[in-house]
C-alpha cells in the first residue's frame, strides 16, 4: 500500500469526476422527478402508488425472479465452463475463450431473432423433442418466460464465464491440489477454497449478469411477445407510449436499487465465505 494521498487522488479523481458530471448528476436530476409532487415538494407517493398496483407487483416479482434464476444458473454453468477452459492447453484455451466471447460480438437483436427460429414450432428444439419422443405435438416455447430465460442466459453467460476465467487463472495453482491432499472432497474444495479465491470474479460476473437481465429490453420484448411484461418493457411503455416520465423514473429507480442490492448481496456471500476460511 502506497500512502501518498495526493498522488492517489490525482490518479482516481479524473475518472470519478467524469462519471459524476457526465452521468451521475443528469441521472440523479431525472430520478428526482419521481420524488416530486405537483407543487414542488418531496413525496414518495409515486412509489406507494406503484407498489399498490397488482400488475406492477407481478411484473416486479417476475423481473426479480428471472434475474435471480439467470444469475444463479449462469454462475453454475459459468464455474463448470471456466474450470474446463482453464484446464486446457494455452493454445486451445485461447480458441475456446474466443468462442465463448463470440456471441458478445453479435447484435443482441439478431441473436434474439435467431431464437425465434430455434425455439419455434418447426424449430430445431421442437424437431429434436419430437424425434426423441419427448413430446408428440410441438411445444409452445416461444413467447413465454422460458424463452426469455433462454434468451437472457445466452446473452449474459459469456460475461460470467470470462469473469470467472480471469478469477480462476489468478488463483494460486497449488490451492486445489493442496486442499485435495488435505482430504477435502470436491464440494468442500469448491466451497472453501475456490469460491473465496474467485469471489471477485463471481461478484463482477454476477452483477453484470443480474443487472443485464434486469435492464435488457430487446430480449423480453421479442421473446416474451409482450405477454410477459418485465420492468424494463413496462418502463419503455411509460416513456414511449404514455409519455409518463415520472412513472419511468420510478421504475428506473427501482431497477437501480435492485442492482445495488444484488451487488451488495453478492459481496456479502463472497466475504462471508472468506471469513470462514480465514478463521478455519
Amino acid at each position: 500500500m502506497f500512502q501518498n494521498r495526493a498522488e492517489a487522488l490525482a490518479l482516481a479523481l479524473p475518472a470519478a469526476i467524469f462519471a459524476a458530471a457526465v452521468f451521475l448528476v443528469p441521472v440523479i436530476i431525472l430520478l428526482s422527478d419521481g420524488f416530486r409532487d405537483p407543487v414542488g415538494g418531496w413525496t414518495i407517493s409515486a412509489y406507494t402508488d406503484f407498489f399498490s398496483n397488482s400488475l406492477n407487483q407481478t411484473v416486479f416479482l417476475r423481473t426479480l425472479r428471472l434475474g435471480a434464476i439467470v444469475t444463479v444458473v449462469s454462475a453454475v454453468i459459468g464455474y463448470a465452463a471456466a474450470f474446463a477452459i482453464v484446464s486446457l492447453e494455452p493454445a486451445t484455451k485461447g480458441k475456446i475463450t474466443g468462442l465463448v466471447v463470440l456471441p458478445l460480438m453479435i447484435s443482441p437483436v439478431a441473436r434474439t431473432y435467431a431464437w425465434i427460429v430455434i425455439l419455434g414450432r418447426t424449430g430445431i428444439v421442437n424437431q429434436a423433442f419430437q424425434a426423441l419422443g419427448i413430446t408428440d405435438a410441438p411445444l409452445r416455447i416461444l413467447f413465454s418466460e422460458t424463452a426469455i430465460f433462454i434468451g437472457l442466459l445466452q446473452l449474459f453467460l459469456p460475461l460470467m464465464i470470462i469473469s470467472l476465467i480471469s478469477a480462476l487463472e489468478n488463483m494460486p495453482k497449488d490451492a486445489i491440489p493442496a486442499a485435495r491432499v488435505l482430504g477435502a472432497n470436491w464440494f468442500q474444495v469448491f466451497w472453501k477454497v475456490v469460491l473465496p479465491l474467485t469471489k471477485e470474479g463471481l461478484v463482477i460476473g454476477g452483477t453484470l449478469v443480474f443487472t443485464g437481465s434486469l435492464t435488457a429490453y430487446i430480449t423480453p420484448a421479442i421473446l416474451g411477445g409482450s405477454k410477459v411484461l418485465m420492468l424494463e418493457t413496462l418502463m419503455y411503455q411509460q416513456v414511449s407510449v404514455s409519455g409518463n416520465f415520472v412513472a419511468a423514473s420510478v421504475i428506473a429507480f427501482i431497477l437501480i436499487v435492485m442492482s445495488f442490492a444484488a451487488n451488495i448481496l453478492l459481496k456479502r456471500v463472497a466475504t462471508a465465505r472468506n471469513k470462514v476460511r480465514s478463521q478455519g
Binding site: A16, I29, A248
Partner: peptide, 28 residues
C-alpha cells in the same frame, strides 16, 4: 493506495453499469 473515500469513488465510477440505458439516454 490508501485512498480517502475509496468506496465512494468506486461506486461513482461503476454507477453507469446499473442504470437502465433508456434513463441514461434521456437524462443526457
Amino acid at each position: 493506495y490508501k485512498l480517502p473515500g475509496a468506496e465512494v469513488i468506486r461506486t461513482v465510477v461503476s454507477a453507469p453499469i446499473i442504470v437502465p440505458g433508456i434513463i441514461v439516454g434521456l437524462a443526457l
